[in-house]
């Protein structure tokens, strides 16, 4: 079969909404795009364990401690499915981790913001996981089979996390004055960074066009951002909190809210390494990996010894 025949098969699958599987032929750019996107997603899950893990030892009730432990463990599990999905594209976990540790690969910028109070754990679950779900629901139907299947499992757990986050916010918003102030402060700090999670405006999004063409993405950044605002504003109202945006206004004509754009200069700064926690997050990941080197070596040495005994016997 000639290359253009392979391409016809590939295009045919996309056209028929069929999944592309690991052994199928795929264009190099498609493969590269997926490796970049899936590994970024995996890294985000792993780095995301840090800001949330930050509050496990200080969770203010035993129930919330257990729930948070389970949640952070889920995020690690998501990282694992996603690394495995990325490996089906012909890249090793070591290589993927190396890219993270050297700063070559990106992860979601949102995790470069600090979790300063317990309310931030509520806000991360409610807003950040809420925004993540908007992206991820669409990815359950993405064209690459292993990625789509991983996303089905991940989405189920993320919806659960979002409810947990909202539950924390509810307790705070309907709690004492101090708790309500804590909730409002968290909303003020997380609102715009969450909006940035959908990526730059469509007009300036460098990767969107191919992603749409290959059915890796099915909706644009701006569409998703609009949907997020429309869904979240009534929840903020229910909590009796205020969205930190003076320009937020219902627009009857478009049946959605008008809202202020996040500060894209800040976005670029955080992406390029100048967020409040970029250096700490990367240092924490590197430290864990380096401190774990002797553990991994011991496991390998032990397996080798036992294998030799087994072979000799």
């Amino acid at each position: 079969m000639e290359v253009n025949k392979f391409e016809d098969v590939f295009e045919g699958k996309l056209a028929k909404n069929e999944m592309v599987e690991p052994k199928d032929w795929m264009p190099d750019n498609y493969r590269k795009h997926l490796i970049r996107q899936i590994s970024q997603h995996a890294h985000s899950e792993i780095v995301g364990m840090l800001p949330e893990g930050n509050w496990i030892t200080r969770a203010p009730s035993l129930r919330s401690k257990v729930v948070l432990l389970a949640k952070v463990q889920d995020e690690g599990g998501h990282g694992l499915y996603l690394y495995t999905a990325a490996e089906t594209l012909g890249i090793s976990r070591d290589e993927l981790l190396d890219n993270l540790h050297t700063g070559k690969a990106k992860y979601s910028s949102i995790f470069n913001y600090p979790t300063l109070t317990w309310a931030d754990i509520g806000a991360v679950g409610w807003l950040v996981d809420g925004a993540a779900i908007m992206n991820q629901v669409m990815l359950q139907r993405t064209s690459y089979g292993p990625y789509a299947r991983a996303m089905v499992r991940i989405c189920k757990e993320e919806s659960f996390h979002q409810r947990q986050g909202f539950e924390i916010m509810t307790r705070l918003a309907f709690g004492t004055e101090d708790q309500k102030a804590m909730a409002q402060d968290a909303l003020n700090r997380w609102w715009y960074p969450t909006m940035m999670m959908f990526g730059p405006p469509d007009a300036e999004s460098p990767n969107s066009e191919n992603a749409m063409k290959w059915r890796i993405k099915r909706e644009t950044n701006d569409q998703l951002r609009q949907r997020f605002v429309d869904q979240t504003v009534p929840q903020v109202q229910y909590l009796g909190l205020t969205v930190p945006d003076a320009n937020l206004k219902w627009n009857e004509a478009k049946k959605g809210y008008d809202f202020s754009e996040p500060n894209w200069v800040e976005f670029k700064n955080v992406i390029s390494g100048n967020g409040p926690c970029n250096k700490e997050r990367l240092a924490a990941r590197n430290k864990a990996h380096n401190d774990g080197a002797w553990v991994r070596e011991a496991a390998q040495a032990f397996a080798k010894k036992r294998n030799e005994i087994y072979v000799a016997a």
């Binding site: 792993i46 035993l62 774990g292």
Partner: peptide, 24 residues
């Protein structure tokens, strides 16, 4: 649970967190 997110590799991080979860 102080180890969560800082384990020597991902699978082990998950395992130890799971133990922490059971015990808590």
């Amino acid at each position: 649970s102080e180890w969560t997110g800082h384990g020597p590799f991902l699978e082990e991080d998950l395992a130890l967190t799971n133990i922490a979860l059971d015990i808590t």
